[in-house]
């Protein structure tokens, strides 16, 4: 009897590991590439002020506001989220790979929320990635990199235009950002977290 139970348990764990806990696989065929770095062109012109209308869906509550990003110099970027009335909801400064909170409104100032917001907005505006691996597929390529030890997949189309950025763990996708862009300007950006129910849609403010 015990033998039967042991066989059943081992089989169940094996099935669980091979199905539910399937490794996250990067699409495409691994290729050798001489390219060592990729520079994300969005939010990356020094001195330019990027203004976006933001629709934020957090735990099924919708907020609307304005996202402002400015690259101050080679090492620093500033990002602020404002309400339609103009009051500042949050104001972050990115220096190299670190994010400093200049201001965050009290309702958002909870350790977990601040940590997620820092991570999400850094993913949105971070621009310099070291390429670890390159995968090629019919419509473009996937470039694998790391940010703070987390795996990042940058997807280019056939014109070498960055169309999406994902943060993935060994097992699954955590964050996805889709860029609808031409050249250095992303007209529209869709952000989705698979960790917590957060979606952000950005549309360039005319």
């Amino acid at each position: 009897m015990f033998k039967l139970i042991r066989v059943f348990l081992i089989t169940s764990v094996f099935i669980l590991i091979t199905t539910a806990c399937k490794h996250y696989k990067v699409a495409g065929t691994k290729i050798e590439s001489s390219k060592e770095r990729i520079v994300v062109p969005y939010f990356n012109t020094a001195g330019k002020e990027y203004l976006y209308n933001a629709k934020i869906d957090v735990f099924n509550n919708e907020l609307s506001g304005i996202l402002v990003v400015k690259k101050l110099d080679d090492k620093r970027k500033r990002l602020a989220l404002l309400s339609e009335f103009g009051n500042t909801l949050l104001d972050f400064e990115m220096v190299n790979n670190e994010v400093n909170v200049i201001y965050i409104m009290e309702d958002l100032n909870k350790k977990l929320i601040v940590a997620k917001l820092k991570k999400y907005f850094q993913l949105l505006v971070h621009s310099n990635y070291e390429i670890k691996q390159t995968y090629s597929f019919e419509n473009g390529s996937n470039l694998v990199s790391k940010l703070h030890g987390k795996r990042i997949i940058l997807r280019n189309n056939n014109n070498a235009q960055l169309i999406s950025l994902q943060q993935v763990s060994v097992w699954r996708e955590k964050v996805k950002i889709d860029f609808y862009a031409e050249g250095k300007h992303a007209d529209s950006i869709h952000f989705k977290s698979f960790e917590i129910p957060v979606k952000i849609k950005l549309r360039m403010r005319k």
Binding site: E49, V68, R78, A80, L82, F85, G86
Partner: peptide, 15 residues
């Protein structure tokens, strides 16, 4: 006319 001034921006945000 609404104008949001932030010290780090060169241009105010207008609505």
């Amino acid at each position: 006319e609404q104008s949001k001034h932030m010290a780090f921006l060169s241009n105010d945000i207008q609505s």
